[in-house]
Simulated assay, not measured.
Amino acid sequence: MRIIKNADVRRNEILDAAEALFNLIGFDATTISAIILKAGIARGTVYYHFKSKEDVLDALIERHCQRLLSEAKEIAANSSLPVMERLIQTLMAMNGDKEGAPSVITQQMHRPQNALMHQKTHQTMLEAIPPILMGIIEDGIKEGLFHTPYPYESLEMIVAHVNTVFDDYAEKLTEKELLSRIRAFIFNLERIFGAAPGSFDSVAVLFHTDCGVDE
C-alpha cells in the first residue's frame, strides 16, 4: 500500500537527506540523484518541491535561520532569567555554529557564487533579530541596567556590525586583530546601551574565545 505524506513532510524529508549528504561529502559532491536515493523518493517528487540542488540549499538556509530564530524567541521570552543571562543565551541560540566549526550551510553561504544567498540571509537576520532582543533590552532599561533613548536603533546597528565584521571577514583577521575587535565591540556595547563597565564581558563567549577584557 502506497503511503501518501503531507507535502511539508516530504519537503522536509528531502531537506533532511540533502543536509546529511552535504555534511558527509560536501555540497559539490552531492547530486540530486544521491539526494533522491538517500530520501528514498521518486525523482519527480524532488523536482515538484525544488528546481535544482541550489534551490535545495537555499531552502536549507531558510529552514536553518527559522530554527535559530524560533529557539531564540523562546529563550528571549523567558523573563524568569536575569536580563544579561537571557540576552547571552538568546544570542547564543542564534549562533548556527555553536561548536565553533562552521557548518556546511555556513561554508556555502560564504562562497563567492552564493553572495546573493548570503545577502538574503543577512537581511533576514537584520529584520528578525532586533524585535526578538527588544523585550530583553526594555527589561534591562526598567531594571536600570541599560540607559539609552534609542534601544531599537541601537540593536539594528549592533546586528549590522556583527554581520559585517564578525561574519563577513573575521576569517581574514589574525588572532590579535580579532581579539582587538572583540574588545572594541564589548567596549562600544557598554556605551551604546549606557551599561556599566564590564556588563557585557560575557559576550566574549559568543566568539568561542576569551578576549581578556581585563588585561
Rank of each mutant, 00 (worst) to 15 (best):
Y150D: 15
P131D: 11
A170S: 14
A160P: 06
G198H: 06
F187E: 15
I192Y: 05
T124R: 11
F166N: 00
T174S: 14
L179E: 12
K176L: 15
L145E: 10
F146N: 08
M134C: 03
N163L: 14
E127Q: 15
T121Y: 09
T164I: 06
R183N: 05
I158P: 02
E177G: 07
A184V: 04
F146L: 09
E127W: 02
E177L: 02
P130I: 09
E190D: 12
L173R: 07
R191A: 01
I136Q: 00
I136C: 12
K176E: 14
T124N: 12
F193Q: 04
A128Y: 13
P197Q: 05
L189A: 12
L126H: 11
R183K: 02
F166W: 05
G198I: 10
G140T: 11
I129W: 06
M134L: 15
A170I: 11
T124P: 05
D168R: 00
V165A: 12
K176R: 11
T121Q: 13
L145I: 14
L178C: 03
P130F: 14
Y152G: 04
G194M: 11
A184N: 13
E153G: 01
E190A: 04
I136A: 02
N188F: 12
H147V: 04
G135R: 10
G135E: 08
F166R: 10
I158K: 03
G135F: 00
E138W: 04
G144K: 11
P149I: 07
A196N: 11
Y150G: 06
F193C: 08
T121L: 14
F166S: 07
G144Y: 03
M125S: 02
I182H: 00
M125R: 12
G140R: 06
F187N: 12
P197H: 12
H147L: 08
T121E: 14
S180I: 04
I158Q: 01
T164G: 00
V162F: 05
M157L: 15
S154Q: 12
K176T: 12
E153F: 05
T148F: 07
P149N: 03
V165T: 13
G135W: 09
A170P: 06
V162S: 06
G140F: 06
L173T: 00
M125E: 05
P197V: 02
P151T: 05
I186Q: 00
G144F: 04
T121A: 13
L179F: 06
E127I: 02
I192W: 09
L145D: 04
K172H: 15
A184H: 03
G144E: 03
F185H: 13
F185C: 10
V159I: 15
E190L: 03
L173Q: 10
P151Y: 02
A170G: 08
E143S: 10
L133F: 01
Y152N: 12
T124M: 07
E156G: 02
L179D: 05
T124C: 13
Y150A: 15
A196C: 05
V165P: 00
S180D: 08
D168M: 04
M157A: 13
A160K: 13
F185M: 05
L189E: 08
K142S: 15
I137C: 04
F146Q: 04
P197F: 03
T121H: 13
I137Y: 01
E175T: 06
A170V: 15
E171W: 09
E143P: 10
D167V: 15
E127M: 08
I186F: 03
G140M: 01
A184E: 07
